[in-house]
Measured scan of single mutants.
Amino acid sequence: MTFKLIINGKTLKGETTTEAVDAATAEKVFKQYFNDNGIDGEWTYDDATKTFTITE
């Protein structure tokens, strides 16, 4: 399955996707992406659209 990440950061904005077997696996991938890029904020997940959103 394809999961999308929408980034609404102070310095970084955009979208990316990842292929994962489930939302929990995608969450781990995206959290690592947050850490690697110094993004910290509030994030949500919409199961209907398989979209994670992080807002700094």
Rank of each mutant, 00 (worst) to 15 (best):
D40L: 12
F30S: 00
T17D: 04
F3N: 02
N37W: 15
F52C: 01
E27K: 07
T11C: 15
T25W: 06
I7G: 01
G38Q: 12
Y33P: 03
A24S: 08
D46N: 08
T55M: 06
W43E: 01
G41P: 04
T2H: 08
T53C: 06
E56P: 12
D46V: 03
I54R: 02
E15V: 12
T25C: 06
K28Y: 08
L12W: 14
A48W: 07
E56N: 05
Y33Q: 07
K50A: 05
T49I: 05
A20H: 02
Y33C: 12
E42T: 12
D40A: 10
T51N: 01
N8P: 02
T55D: 05
T2Q: 09
E56C: 14
K13V: 10
F52M: 01
M1C: 12
E15W: 14
G14K: 12
T51H: 01
I6D: 01
T25K: 04
F52R: 00
Y33T: 04
T11G: 09
D36S: 12
F3V: 04
I6S: 03
Y45T: 00
A20N: 02
K50M: 09
V29F: 15
V21S: 10
G9M: 15
K31I: 11
I39M: 10
A23Q: 07
I54Y: 14
A48R: 09
F34A: 15
A26W: 03
F3W: 04
T18L: 14
T53M: 11
K50S: 04
L12D: 06
T53K: 04
A26D: 00
T16K: 13
D36M: 11
I39H: 05
G9T: 15
D22C: 03
E27Y: 15
T2E: 07
A24E: 11
F30M: 04
A23R: 11
V21A: 12
A24I: 08
D36P: 07
I7V: 09
F30E: 00
A48F: 09
D22V: 01
D36G: 10
I39Q: 04
V21Q: 10
T18C: 15
Y45N: 00
A20W: 02
E19S: 10
Y33E: 04
Y45P: 00
A23I: 07
T18S: 03
T18M: 12
G38F: 14
V29Q: 11
K28L: 11
T16A: 12
N35P: 06
T25D: 07
T55E: 06
D22K: 01
Y45W: 02
I39S: 05
G14C: 15
K10E: 07
T55L: 06
T17K: 06
T2F: 09
W43D: 00
T16E: 06
T53H: 05
A26S: 01
A23E: 05
I7E: 01
A20C: 07
G9V: 15
M1H: 11
I54H: 05
L12Q: 10
G9L: 15
E42G: 05
D36A: 11
G41M: 11
T44M: 08
E27M: 12
E56G: 05
D40G: 09
T17A: 08
N8M: 13
F34L: 15
T25Y: 07
L5Y: 02
I7T: 03
A20Y: 02
T16Q: 11
I6A: 03
Q32T: 09
D47W: 05
I6T: 03
F34V: 15
A26R: 01
T51I: 04
